Amino acid sequence: MKILVLGGTWFLGRAVAQAALDRGWSVTAFNRGRSGTAPEGTHEIRGDRTVHADLLRLGEQGPWDAVIDTSASNSPRAMCWPAPRCWSLWRADTSTSPP
């Protein structure tokens, strides 16, 4: 399984990346490089999800079987994602309670 973790260097994102690696999955972490470090064995790509050129460059590195975003950002700008080569998106939204 090939997954892309948006972030992947801090708190929940890092734990998700590590759990995927522990299962033998291929993990790519897309982040700005401002906090934490991705687990050993993670392929890191530096970039910002709000910068269109960074997202296009990221898309060239796929495809992935899943994209995981653990960010709680509700900013429409933070959600700009062209995703032409990504098949699914799982987003852990911690800003709302489950139904």
Rank of each mutant, 00 (worst) to 15 (best):
W90Q: 06
W64M: 05
W90D: 12
A72T: 13
T70N: 07
R77D: 15
P84T: 06
L89M: 10
C80E: 13
L89Y: 12
P84L: 06
C80D: 15
L89G: 05
Q61N: 11
D69G: 01
S75C: 13
M79K: 13
Q61C: 12
W90P: 07
T70G: 02
W64Q: 03
G59E: 09
P82D: 08
E60D: 09
P76L: 13
A78K: 07
S73Y: 12
T70Y: 02
W64H: 05
S73P: 07
S71M: 02
D54R: 00
G62R: 04
D54H: 06
L56F: 13
G59V: 06
G62L: 02
N74S: 08
W64Y: 15
A66N: 05
W87R: 07
G59Y: 03
N74V: 11
C80H: 12
P84D: 06
Q61Y: 01
E60H: 09
E60M: 04
A78Y: 12
G62N: 04
C86V: 11
P84E: 02
S88V: 14
W87N: 15
A83M: 09
W90I: 08
A66V: 11
P76W: 15
L89E: 05
L56K: 09
Q61P: 04
W81G: 13
W87F: 14
R77Y: 09
I68A: 01
C80G: 10
D54N: 05
E60Q: 09
M79V: 03
D54F: 03
G59N: 10
P76T: 13
L58K: 00
D69N: 10
D65A: 03
A53K: 00
A53M: 00
P82M: 02
A72E: 06
L56W: 14
S75W: 11
S88M: 10
N74E: 15
P82N: 06
L55C: 13
T70V: 13
C80R: 12
A53P: 00
T70A: 10
T70K: 03
P84Y: 03
R57H: 04
C86T: 11
C80V: 08
V67A: 14
S75F: 11
M79E: 04
L89R: 02
L56G: 00
S75Q: 15
A66Y: 02
E60R: 10
A72H: 05
I68C: 02
D54L: 03
P84R: 05
G59W: 01
